[in-house]
Simulated scan of single mutants.
Amino acid sequence: MILYDNSILKLDYDPATDILEVAYPDLHDFLLVEIKYSIDQLIENVNNYDVKRLLLDSSRTVIAVNGERSREITSYLAASLCKTRLQKLARLQSPDSTVEVTAQSNIKHIETHLHLPFVLRNFTSRKEACGWLTTN
């Protein structure tokens, strides 16, 4: 069921598996304020539905901002998720090596600077990610 949908984020929740699926937004300077607002909507829905499993699809993400801006958005998302009861976050990797290098750098940064109360794993396949999310 679609919980939220705008031009930046679409939240698709499956109550049977308790998996909330969201595509990581394209990062453009002119969208950063709207992206933060959309992340706030994501967090509100994670809290309202007490979501424990999140599938973050970065496979089609475009990054058109500098590394600092990208890190800012990633850190904002991670810090916001730390305030929820999320237990597992599966991230679908980008096939674009430039995007993936930036993403891995951002992940390393948040793992160093934040105590993540959820487990974060990267996957190249949606099937594997969903399988991991649904296992105890």
Rank of each mutant, 00 (worst) to 15 (best):
residue 126 R to G: 01
residue 124 T to G: 05
residue 51 V to H: 04
residue 29 D to K: 13
residue 134 T to H: 04
residue 92 L to V: 01
residue 118 F to Y: 15
residue 72 E to L: 09
residue 77 L to S: 06
residue 42 L to M: 09
residue 72 E to T: 06
residue 44 E to L: 15
residue 15 P to E: 14
residue 34 E to Y: 10
residue 89 L to Q: 03
residue 135 T to N: 11
residue 132 W to V: 06
residue 70 S to L: 00
residue 66 N to Q: 03
residue 79 A to Q: 11
residue 102 T to A: 11
residue 41 Q to K: 12
residue 119 V to L: 15
residue 89 L to D: 04
residue 37 Y to R: 14
residue 24 Y to M: 09
residue 119 V to G: 12
residue 20 L to F: 03
residue 76 Y to G: 05
residue 17 T to D: 10
residue 57 D to C: 03
residue 62 V to G: 07
residue 5 D to W: 07
residue 90 A to R: 01
residue 12 D to A: 06
residue 128 E to D: 15
residue 124 T to M: 08
residue 97 S to P: 07
residue 37 Y to A: 12
residue 49 Y to E: 10
residue 114 L to R: 06
residue 21 E to P: 02
residue 86 L to S: 01
residue 61 T to W: 00
residue 77 L to K: 04
residue 23 A to W: 02
residue 111 E to H: 09
residue 135 T to I: 11
residue 51 V to K: 00
residue 131 G to H: 00
residue 31 L to C: 12
residue 81 L to Y: 00
residue 123 F to N: 01
residue 130 C to W: 03
residue 30 F to T: 14
residue 85 R to K: 15
residue 71 R to Y: 10
residue 26 D to F: 03
residue 23 A to Y: 00
residue 72 E to Y: 08
residue 54 L to N: 01
residue 9 L to M: 08
residue 54 L to V: 00
residue 38 S to G: 07
residue 132 W to H: 09
residue 68 E to S: 11
residue 111 E to F: 08
residue 102 T to K: 11
residue 106 N to E: 09
residue 121 R to Q: 14
residue 19 I to F: 02
residue 58 S to P: 02
residue 121 R to N: 13
residue 22 V to A: 11
residue 15 P to F: 12
residue 47 N to V: 05
residue 27 L to Q: 07
residue 24 Y to C: 06
residue 113 H to K: 07
residue 41 Q to T: 05
residue 13 Y to R: 04
residue 31 L to K: 15
residue 8 I to Y: 03
residue 122 N to V: 03
residue 71 R to I: 07
residue 21 E to H: 09
residue 49 Y to W: 13
residue 91 R to M: 12
residue 4 Y to E: 02
residue 128 E to V: 03
residue 64 A to G: 10
residue 78 A to Y: 01
residue 35 I to Q: 05
residue 126 R to D: 00
residue 43 I to V: 15
residue 21 E to V: 00
residue 136 N to G: 15
residue 85 R to T: 14
residue 1 M to F: 13
residue 134 T to I: 11
residue 84 T to W: 04
residue 64 A to E: 13
residue 11 L to F: 02
residue 67 G to P: 01
residue 59 S to M: 01
residue 96 D to L: 09
residue 136 N to F: 12
residue 53 R to E: 06
residue 83 K to L: 08
residue 17 T to V: 05
residue 63 I to V: 15
